[in-house]
């Protein structure tokens, strides 16, 4: 068994933690955006580093990708990638409550990504009695070539990607984005320790 095979119970626990985090993040988002956010159960998939680019390739041609690092106690850390289809992002400024000429497309997508990533991971962390810090979000690129390059540069640094597919639908607006959490092996072992502790409690 290698480091990141999860047992059925561990998988179930992780899915539940993520569902709850998603639920509360959407609630915060709905209040902040003053709209209703339709929520689908996020799908969770574990992807080995060497296969990640392939799984992304199937879904994406032209994309915008925003990357943001996260790190908490007990060695839980990684990098969140938010991957958008460009047609989703035309009216983001409107959705975010800014005037259209107040901010550029790059800024809109970075702003939204930061909100999605941090609200989600904050709730996730609080459920496991942890607390996250974040690096500044960066727009990687608008094309897959550069994203692959970025992933290849990073690949020595992480072994498993947790691909959390989240689809946000907001009244009057609709956009889909994939959130991919890249997690290095040591951090996976640390997460499993935390999961096992939760499972023991129940």
């Amino acid at each position: 068994m290698n480091a990141f095979d999860l047992t059925e119970d561990q998988q179930d626990c992780l899915q539940e933690l993520i569902n709850v985090a998603m639920g509360q993040a959407s609630d915060q988002l709905a209040r902040y955006l003053d709209t209703f956010v339709y929520l689908k159960v996020p799908s969770i998939e574990q992807v080995k580093s060497e296969h990640l680019i392939d799984t992304l390739n199937q879904d994406l041609k032209e994309t915008a990708v925003v990357s943001q690092g996260f790190f908490g106690y007990e060695g839980i850390r990684g990098e969140a990638l938010l991957i958008y289809q460009p047609q989703d992002s035309n009216r983001l400024a409107d959705l975010l409550g800014y005037e259209a000429d107040e901010l550029t497309f790059d800024e809109q997508i970075i702003d939204l990504s930061s909100i999605l990533t941090t609200t989600f991971l904050n709730v996730f962390a609080s459920q496991i009695d942890n607390q996250m810090s974040y690096s500044a979000p960066r727009l990687l690129s608008a094309n897959l070539g550069t994203v692959s390059e970025h992933l290849q540069q990073q690949s020595f640094n992480w072994d498993l990607a947790l691909k959390v597919r989240i689809s946000y639908q907001v009244t009057d607006y609709s956009f889909n984005c994939d959130m991919v959490l890249l997690i290095p092996e040591q951090a996976i072992i640390n997460i499993k320790t935390v999961i096992d502790r939760i499972l023991e409690e129940f």
Binding site: Q28, L29, E102, S114, I115, T118, T119, N122, P137, L139
Partner: peptide, 26 residues
Amino acid sequence: PQKWFERKLSSVIQLKTQSFCGWEQR
């Protein structure tokens, strides 16, 4: 930029989460 700044800070207060503004954007 007052309106922008107020909206930015309101997201920090309401969502209780940090926010960023990088030199590449501004």
